[in-house]
Design a binder for these strands. Sequence first.
DNA 1: GGGTGAATAGGCCGTGAGGCCCACGGCACG
DNA 2: CGTGCCGTGGGCCTCACGGCCTATTCACCC
Lengths: 211, 211
Amino acid sequence: MIRVWIADDHTLFAQGLSRALDAVPDIRVVGIAASATELLENIVSQPAEVAITDLEMPGGGGAAVLGKLESTPVIVVSMHADEDQRRAAARAGAAGFFSKSAPLSVISAAIRAVAAGERLDPSDEAATEATLAGYSEPSLDPGAASLTDREKEILGHLARGVSATDELAEILFISQKTVKNHLASIFQKLAVSDRTQAAVEAIRLGLAEER
Amino acid sequence: MIRVWIADDHTLFAQGLSRALDAVPDIRVVGIAASATELLENIVSQPAEVAITDLEMPGGGGAAVLGKLESTPVIVVSMHADEDQRRAAARAGAAGFFSKSAPLSVISAAIRAVAAGERLDPSDEAATEATLAGYSEPSLDPGAASLTDREKEILGHLARGVSATDELAEILFISQKTVKNHLASIFQKLAVSDRTQAAVEAIRLGLAEER
DNA sequence: GGGTGAATAGGCCGTGAGGCCCACGGCACG
DNA sequence: CGTGCCGTGGGCCTCACGGCCTATTCACCC
């Protein structure tokens, strides 16, 4: 689980990005700040592995953050991906630079890469892309990664609200006993103790089936 | 349930806003477009009550959308909330104008207002604010609307994965019996039959408590 | 060919969940 | 001053959930 801080004065963007990243199984947003100072004040009590910030912010933008955060790598996300900003980010020591036009998948990969210690040179797009390729897959929790297809299928139904053993058995064309066996296995892998917690976890992992 | 289309070339912003709005109980995002043309092509097959767009987009921005969508009101969300843009939005016939610095709650309210037929004059901030005040509350499902504070609190914990009666009782400083009574009431109001379904519903309604 | 793991299924058992009663104090609203 | 509603509790009963163990079939793979 990678913990992330977001600093951006565009509240809508920050809130939206937060929600979107929370939906990524191995990433969790631990805080949102509207300014550089707010980020620096709060990241102490609520530590994170990665910080995401805009370059332009009223009252001290991304550059101020970059200078004062030694231990936490910072990814800069800007609306204008021009050369000036790219260079400015590189100078300030950003661990990565992306446009707000980038899709979520790229940012997720960048977060994983940076959390793993990689540095994505803002001025070298080709190298950045090559590095990100190695981080496209969500590193699922040790437990969730070992879920079998059948178990994921059951979790999908759970996440949709099908919770009763007899209903699950009917849908899956198997006996109620087998359903309970699968659930027991799921509980162990997800480190939970009942189907309610399993359902919550399933939704968090994005296993909810489309209706 | 208000259906919303989002058009913005800043993919990250669009995806984030989509997730954030989906978490609002009475709003659902039915499509995301990266350009004006993409929006106009797809909104036909996937209709919506409200469209949200940026003003500046490569290959025809918000103005193009505003001119061609007669039946669907359009809210313009821009990163620069300066007077020029404000006037441009007003001229083009926007049903509302907001900065990307606005909090999610304002956008949610604006969507409700616009869906209800209101027109938020981009050049009159005071009037806009006054109108929005009447649309701050999400119009919850008939069942969920009658939930008491205590019931919502319990649902919040359920949505976070606290499912055991004894744990809930400990957290809430009440007897296990009272927890079960509250749950029984919740089951009835949400038309579900166990706490797993209640947890799923709670997450859907955005009742998951902040960490 | 034998080992490994997934999917299927059964038994047994204790406790916890959910259904259905009722009760009482507090507080708001007419 | 009643009349509700909310939050708090109790009792009782049934059955399903979850824990633990064993077994069979099938596919895959070294």
